[in-house]
Design a protein around this nucleic acid. Structure first.
Length: 276
DNA sequence: GCGTCTCCCCGTCATGGCTA
DNA sequence: TAGCCATGACGGGGAGACGC
């Protein structure tokens, strides 16, 4: 099996494992865990931007490492208990998602489209990591907030704080290089039918010929790609930060839990009648 | 050394949310 | 409502670990 197809296979399996088991209940509600990768918060599907009714989580094991996922018992607001492996294992986090999904009539539509739509619905937008973390931090003093703007922690972060280039040109090696201090990006062959020509700063107001229009379109595309590239980098950075925060929070809560248990035991010992 | 597995990172696309 | 932003999904590549 080739590397790529294997990856695809693995990813597909992971998705299948994580996207299933949304079981309609007798009363029409949907309860179960949609354990899902790449997101790490609990929410109801209905209120994406609001803090959901938190499920009660009890960690029945220790270890947040990859090799030894803890078994987590999650008590849903409805009273149902769901067993979940690992709150945080890897950056590809497992999530408990309490989804309320409208009834679907699967037999009526083609499965491929349905699957795609369902997946999209389920995986569709969540609040940003920044939002989630800031909401967490408002509850828990110890949790740091993700800054709205780039913090100094990463230094100048040259490729994040970049400005939109005013001119880009194609070098002989096929690279587009922005002027000034801009980093150099390797641009793949365009996936569209747009000509891979030399692009440059044309004033939008003076576009008449098809060639100029094409150039402008190419320029816009490159600009969009560059911005999205940077946005993706920033998003991933935030996500990592978010995961780190969650992991540290788990560690703190585990210690806290341990202390409370010890305290409880001590109190029990004190209060229990002595047997002679 | 080679093949495979696994993890991580990156660029791109698609899409929902937000805002002017 | 168009444009922009944020982010999940996908596919590809690099690198380290491991068994042979």
């Amino acid at each position: 099996m080739s590397k790529c197809s294997r990856k695809k296979y693995i990813k597909t399996n992971i998705r299948q494992m994580t996207m299933e088991t949304v079981e309609p209940q007798q009363d029409g509600s949907v309860t179960d865990s949609v354990a899902e990768s790449d997101s790490a918060h609990m929410q109801t599907q209905a209120g994406q931007n609001s803090i959901p009714t938190l499920a009660q989580v009890s960690v029945a094991g220790s270890g947040t490492g990859r090799s030894s996922p803890a078994v987590t018992l999650v008590q849903l607001p409805s009273g149902q208990t769901v067993q979940v492996q690992g709150v945080i294992q890897t950056p590809q986090i497992q999530t408990i998602q309490v989804a309320t999904i409208a009834e679907t009539d699967e037999s009526a539509e083609s499965e491929g489209v349905i699957d795609s739509h369902k997946r999209r619905e389920i995986l569709s937008r969540r609040p940003s990591y920044r939002k989630i973390l800031n909401e967490l931090s408002s509850d828990v003093p110890g949790v740091p907030k993700i800054e709205e703007e780039k913090s100094e922690e990463e230094g100048p972060a040259p490729n994040l704080a970049m400005a939109v280039p005013t001119s880009i040109y194609q070098t002989s090696t096929g690279q587009y290089t922005a002027t000034g201090d801009m980093p150099t990006y390797q641009i793949r062959a365009p996936t569209t039918a747009l000509p891979q020509g030399v692009v440059m700063a044309t004033s939008p107001g003076s576009l008449h010929s098809p060639q100029q229009l094409a150039e402008e379109a190419t320029r816009k595309r490159e600009l969009r790609l560059m911005k999205n590239r940077e946005a993706a980098k920033e998003c991933r950075r935030r996500k990592k930060e978010y995961v780190k925060c969650l992991e540290s929070r788990v560690a703190v809560l585990e210690v806290q839990n341990k202390k409370l248990i010890e305290e409880l035991e001590t109190l029990k010992d004190i209060c229990s009648p002595k047997t002679d």
